[in-house]
Design a protein around this nucleic acid. Structure first.
Length: 137
DNA sequence: GCCAACGTTGGC
DNA sequence: GCCAACGTTGGC
């Protein structure tokens, strides 16, 4: 099962709101980037993603899982882009900040570090395990 | 099909 | 609030 990372600006959609959305989850709309779209399309049911707060926060705060695979985004008038649904799995024991990630050499190749603008990105199993370890340390 | 201009994202 | 990086748009 592939691992992912999705970003959200907490003033528009925060992890707290994601939790409040409950087990049904919510749709992850608004992606308008073709690379990000490819990642959304590759996501399988139940696959997990880190939930990252961009701008305000700049930290990974929790884990979500795909509760519905890729389908058209009704807010996209062009019809080119779609979305998936995510439901909350759990919050991390403590958030892992971008600064910490940058200081950790094993995470130097994370897309988050390499391409800060990619809003939906793959995470390797090694990176996933490293971040989880940091959160529980 | 190239590329300059423009808009947006997100770290600082 | 600034600006670098990147994606998209549109004129040619």
């Amino acid at each position: 099962m592939a691992k992912w990372l999705v970003k959200s600006e907490p003033s528009s959609w925060s992890f707290t709101q994601q939790i409040e959305a409950g087990p049904k989850g919510t749709h992850w709309n608004g992606v308008r980037n073709h690379v990000a779209k490819q990642h959304l399309m590759a996501m399988q049911m139940g696959e997990e993603a880190f939930f990252y707060h961009s701008n305000h926060g700049k930290e990974i705060v929790g884990i979500v899982a795909v509760s519905r695979t890729y389908y058209p985004d009704p807010t996209d008038a062009s019809g080119k882009f779609g979305m998936v649904d995510f439901t909350v799995v759990r919050a991390l024991a403590r958030p892992v900040s971008l600064e910490e990630i940058k200081r950790t050499s094993a995470l130097g190749d994370m897309v988050l570090v390499r391409n800060s603008r990619m809003s939906v990105q793959p995470v390797t199993e090694a990176e996933w395990a490293t971040v989880l370890g940091m959160a529980s340390a």
